[in-house]
């Protein structure tokens, strides 16, 4: 499990993300995809498929998985690991949902120089 961040930033409303869909947050270190599952869980992972860099935020969300829109690699939203025969992983980021608002680790504001 990732260590809990010391401070959080309010990113937007849960309802801004479609159910079984995703939205993107731009950071200094590249885009992060925020997913909302059918059970209203929210996951944040880097918006770059480990295979060929596809925008994961545009994939079909099923259960707690997403299928990359470019070549159908399936990733686990919680661990960031590719599933099945495929190898590879993407970074995951802690999220928090409270009163219908989504919060991300404030460290993302500074972290990593522009990619």
């Amino acid at each position: 499990m990732t260590q809990a961040p010391s401070s959080w930033i309010d990113i937007g409303a849960l309802s801004d993300i479609p159910l079984r869909g995703a939205r993107v947050v731009r950071t200094q270190g590249g885009c992060i995809a925020l997913f909302r599952t059918v059970g209203d869980q929210v996951f944040a992972i880097d918006d770059r498929c480990p295979h060929k860099g596809g925008p994961l935020s545009e994939g079909i969300v099923h259960g707690t998985r997403v299928t990359c829109p470019l070549h159908n690699l399936v990733l686990d939203l919680e661990t960031g690991l590719a599933l099945g025969e495929d190898a590879g992983s993407v970074a995951t980021h802690p999220t928090r949902v409270e009163d219908g608002r989504i919060w991300l680790d404030a460290a993302l504001l500074e972290k990593r120089s522009a990619a």
């Binding site: 079984r20 079909i60 969300v61 099923h62 259960g63 299928t67 159908n72």
Partner: peptide
């Protein structure tokens, strides 16, 4: 499974909208 996968959801979405054009609501997320 509880909500299908990337393979069956687009297919189901098409079958449903083709067979029940007036009743079925197109599911963008599928």
């Amino acid at each position: 499974t509880s909500c299908g996968c990337h393979s069956c959801r687009p297919a189901l979405n098409f079958y449903l909208l083709a067979d029940w054009p007036l009743e079925y609501q197109d599911d963008r997320q599928s």
